[in-house]
Amino acid sequence: MASATHPPERLKVSDPNSWDTAAAQYNNALGAIHLISLTETLEPPLLAPGARAIDLGAGTGSLTYQLAERYPQLPILATDISPSMLDQLMVNPTANITTQVADMRAPVVGAAGEASFSHVFSTMAIQLLPDPAADGTLMVWARLLIPNGIVAIGVWDFDQNCRPHALWAEAAVAVDPSYVNPPLVIPGHWNGLAQLEDGLKRTGFRDIKARSQHIGFDIGKEEFMRFFWESKNPMTLDRQASFKGDLEKVKLEMGRLLDEVYDGGRSIPLSAGLVVGRKPRVD
């Protein structure tokens, strides 16, 4: 375990082993219900005969569970590159959820075949890939869909006001004014709604609808501190690893900022970019 003055080695957030260590506590539920609601504005409906959904990069199942609760008759396949994430997802399984270990860049394995799904979902995962439109990932996802099927994708809108990580930077710079917070998104990866919407257009998706959704991270001081310092979330570990000074001092400063600037952790702005679209036409 890293000490306060010797942080852990910098993590690659695309490494499945790093996500395994976060499985028990990682949860990306923020924005899921809003994405489902946006999806419901396009046909075919999730209640249509033969409807079937896949959740790519499902993690611990935040969207999967929201979808299963809202549509208990809808078959849902949840996939993730991390077996531990899926193990956590299945702690409280429902009858309409199945899981499969798969890389979201090439999820067509086993029972998941081309033109097998009416809806393809993914939340807070595609940003781990470099330009998924240019590298063909979005076209792979399109091939999973039936004709006129729907893709629905959510991302963190880092090109808007992402205060959880800005809060970290404020605390770190207060302790070490020379500190430079590394970019949240690896160069070449999408940083928000605009790039996601453009990527779907470049891939040929139709009837695109896009929304920036304020969701907030208003979980309170105690829960935010637990998330940032104890959850082993790869992104928070990455922040900590970038700081070469005394992390205990940063932790104290973060607590002060949460109390004095962020209403005890009850006012932490954060936005998600949500986009839905229809499968490209095949000429």
Rank of each mutant, 00 (worst) to 15 (best):
M1K: 10
A2Q: 12
S3H: 13
A4G: 15
A4T: 06
A4W: 15
T5K: 14
P7W: 06
R10Q: 09
N17C: 03
N17M: 12
N17E: 15
S18K: 06
A24V: 01
Q25A: 12
Y26Q: 13
N28I: 05
G31E: 11
A32P: 03
L35T: 01
S37H: 05
S37P: 00
T39R: 07
T39P: 04
T41H: 06
P44E: 08
L46H: 01
A48L: 03
G50W: 05
G50T: 07
G50N: 07
A51K: 02
R52P: 00
R52H: 12
A53L: 04
I54W: 08
L56D: 12
A58Q: 09
G59D: 12
G59W: 13
T64K: 15
L67E: 07
I76W: 07
L77F: 00
A78R: 07
S82Y: 05
P83M: 07
P83R: 10
M85V: 00
D87A: 13
M90R: 12
M90P: 06
V91Q: 15
V91M: 12
N92G: 08
I97F: 04
I97G: 06
T98P: 00
T98Y: 00
T99M: 11
R105F: 00
P107Y: 05
A111D: 11
A112Q: 04
E114S: 08
A115V: 01
A115L: 06
F117W: 03
S118K: 02
F121D: 03
F121H: 03
S122D: 12
S122T: 10
Q127G: 02
A133E: 04
A134L: 10
D135I: 03
T137V: 13
L138C: 04
V140T: 15
V140R: 13
A142C: 07
R143H: 10
I146V: 15
G149Y: 11
I150S: 07
V155D: 02
V155Q: 06
D159Q: 12
Q160M: 05
Q160C: 08
P164L: 11
H165D: 10
W168F: 15
W168D: 05
E170H: 11
A174R: 09
D176C: 02
S178L: 14
S178V: 02
V180N: 15
L184W: 08
V185W: 01
P187W: 05
G188W: 05
W190S: 03
A194F: 00
A194I: 01
A194V: 04
L196T: 01
G199C: 03
K201N: 02
R202N: 06
G204N: 03
F205C: 03
K209V: 09
A210L: 06
A210W: 05
A210Y: 01
A210V: 02
S212L: 11
Q213I: 01
Q213C: 07
F217C: 09
D218L: 04
I219L: 11
E222L: 07
F224C: 03
R226P: 00
R226N: 06
E230T: 11
S231H: 02
K232P: 00
P234R: 00
P234C: 02
M235N: 10
M235F: 14
R239D: 11
Q240Y: 04
A241S: 15
A241D: 11
K244R: 14
D246M: 11
L247W: 10
K249V: 11
V250L: 12
E253G: 01
D259P: 08
Y262S: 13
Y262P: 08
G264K: 14
V275W: 01
V276Y: 06
V276T: 14
V276F: 09
P280R: 10
